[in-house]
Design a protein around this nucleic acid. Structure first.
Lengths: 238, 238
DNA sequence: GTTTATCAATCGAACGCTCGCTCGATATTG
DNA sequence: CAATATCGAGCGAGCGTTCGATTGATAAAC
């Protein structure tokens, strides 16, 4: 649950530091949302939540959340229809639960990773690596959030958009800081941040493709960092 | 219907050359698939097809294809349920129709644009611009194809994947040719092509964001070209 | 010029099915 | 024997799809 502020250099190191397990996530989820659930015992609740989230992400990412029925979910989790409704208020509530947890988790991890890193070039590398390693571990979460964001209700969708904007703004600030201190060349920092986001998202959107080609997340991270640094490089500093 | 092989420099010029109207697309669609439709008169058929495609793309891109009911579609087109079924065999057939037409159209336009262009750097610029301008005009088509590809039946999904792979291979060949002739530096051309694709896709996936920021497609194209050329630049040729 | 016949085009009620969701009954546990 | 947790048949609504009825325009017959 606690992460050191040093830049993660490898996926293994990041995984150890961030300590992200489905069980841990579900425990936290239960503690925050136990009021909306009819089950009170944490041990039982966490165990079933794990089954539910695991199955939901698997089914929704294969067929789409709208096409996934709660009977599919019931069959895959081993819980009955009524059993499911002890943990969720509605089908949409389930989508919200996942999105919310994913947002708060990734926001927290990114913030922690950047704590104590002040040099823009190092900030950029850390942010890129952290984002990619995080989405590697929580790929199902990220994929779900991306594909299902626009099917949410209005107020929940707005939160998703806001979170997206904020994470892009983080990159924007880093690029701007680099330009202001003369480390990066003058360029459209806002657009640069958007393009970087596109590169980061491609990792979890097309992970199957990359995996089948033998591209691992560390090589991907290296290449994205290289692309951004070349894009931002001043004339003299090749 | 005919396009000149010269590189498009502006969206306006591309639009004039490519001559892509919904009516023209529907006419072509009808001529190719009239056997599966119960309506025989081209004038009437094209007019209704336009309504159907327009409404389908609008509804599906807002709520998702699975969440869009044929009664929604009926209300928006003004056609009755039975009327719709004079043009489509099933709901999935409708999705296939759109995907198929979009694929063949964009493949043809890209090929035509690259006819007679042989210098890798120029090929790269032309391919990027053409892809972006095309997706700007047919954004609804591209967005639909991307988001709904995995909800198709197996054999149709495979075609979608194949088309995706082929368009990435096109970029791969251009980068490789540039490396072989020493114009581009040695780098992972395959991964470079993937990253380029991610940048191109972001334009139609997040077009609302870019539009709200006043980023037009020509500026976007310039920036993507700049990013790729800096990524591929040799040491001496800055 | 009026009526009739023809046929492509469209309609919309109805069918069978699956959906999200509920709730009284049942099982499990301390 | 409470309290907690789970079950699963059943509800109404909405889905994709069908098909006999209806329309409207054109051609044939008188």
């Amino acid at each position: 649950m606690t992460a050191s502020p040093t830049t993660p250099t490898s996926l293994r190191e990041f995984r150890r530091q961030a300590n992200l397990s489905l069980q841990g996530i579900c425990r936290e989820m239960f503690r925050e949302a136990s009021d909306r659930m009819q089950v009170q015992g944490e041990t039982v609740a966490v165990q079933n939540l794990m089954k539910i989230l695991d199955a939901t992400l698997a089914l929704a990412n294969k067929k789409g959340f709208a096409a996934m029925s709660l009977r599919d979910l019931s069959a895959r989790t081993g819980l009955s229809m009524g059993g499911l409704y002890a943990y969720i208020r509605s089908k949409e509530d389930l989508a919200q639960l996942i999105q919310r947890q994913g947002r708060s988790l990734s926001q927290r991890v990114l913030e922690q990773a950047l704590e104590g890193v002040h040099e823009p070039r190092q900030q950029l590398r850390t942010a890129i690596r952290t984002h990619l390693y995080l989405s590697e571990i929580l790929r199902a979460w990220f994929y779900f959030s991306y594909m299902e964001a626009k099917h949410l209700g209005p107020e929940e969708r707005q939160k998703a958009v806001a979170s997206d904007v904020e994470s892009e703004a983080l990159f924007h600030r880093i690029l701007q800081a680099g330009q202001d201190t003369g480390i990066f060349r003058q360029a459209d920092a806002q657009l640069g941040a958007s393009l970087l986001k596109a590169l980061l998202q491609d990792w979890y959107l097309k992970r199957g493709k990359y995996r089948s080609r033998g591209v691992d997340v560390e090589h991907y991270a290296d290449t994205v960092i290289e692309m951004m640094e070349r894009f931002l490089a001043t004339q003299e500093s090749h």
